[in-house]
Amino acid sequence: MSKVLTETFLTALVAGGLLAGVPLLLAALGESISERAGVLNIGLEGMMLLGGYVGFSGALYSGFTWVGFAAGIGAGMFVAVFMAVLCVRLGLDQIVVGIALTLAAEGLTSLLHGAILTERPRLGAVELVTIPGLSGIPVLGRSVFSQHLVVYLTLGLVIFTWWLFRSTNAGLNLRAAGDKPSALDAAGVSVVATRTWAVLATGALGGLGGAYLAIVGAGTFEPFMTNGAGFIAIVIAMLARARPFWVVVGALLIGMSLQLQTALQVASIDVPIDVVNMLPFLAVIVVLLLFGRRAYLPAALGLPYVRGSR
């Protein structure tokens, strides 16, 4: 136990957990918006992957990481446009379209990676923003308060989304689009437009998450590098019941589960790796068992809206 409570172990756990958790947080936050509006965005993995590829390429060729992040957002929104047109406008099956978009993004990025990034380019070190004073706090200081600016902006986005859901008409419209779209329609607000904006916002955040993973998290792009993060983000969003602060908790929990193995190894604690590797998935199962039945899902989630049908 004494080894577990060392500064080395805790620093490794928190720092690595944040690095792994931020892309999940961004994607899950986006999924929360989409799900609240009634669109189950299974294509999130594809949005992250294309965001990662385009974001990395943007940063590489422009020389500016912020261009990369902007490109990643654009790429995520590009995939989201297909989702919006096919599912929101045309009313096709959201699950089938989402899976198809993910597969297409996986194929496309692998193809482009093999064809264009032939010299295996990579980005150099990224600049971190250290908050004076706070970064000196033991354990949490260096781990939490010396991060890329995107991490702080992400926390700002969490607060913004919470405020959006809670205190704005747009938030009410999103909720109505997911729970009772006919009521929203009757109130004179376009369900299609509301859902479209929600899906585009999901694409933007998913793309940013992918770009963060490639630019900051790895410094390079590898085919399939999201490794299912988009699907884990969907689970986080569902369990958080579209509550942004619970999304933060879920993302960091999964991130730290991923990092626990490393932290234990760094602290020279001998635990079978196979057991530790199960932890992220075990965490999801435990949370599902504990909270799954109470999970709130919008009544019209996954259903296309057709005026007059209900």
């Binding site: 096709l92 597969l103 297409a104 194929g107 482009l112 085919p223």
Partner: peptide, 17 residues
């Protein structure tokens, strides 16, 4: 394989109809 996956994706979109 990438091209094939992209094709599968497009077929999936068609199947979604």
């Amino acid at each position: 394989a990438g091209a094939l996956l992209a094709l599968v994706g497009l077929l999936g979109l068609a199947a979604a109809c």
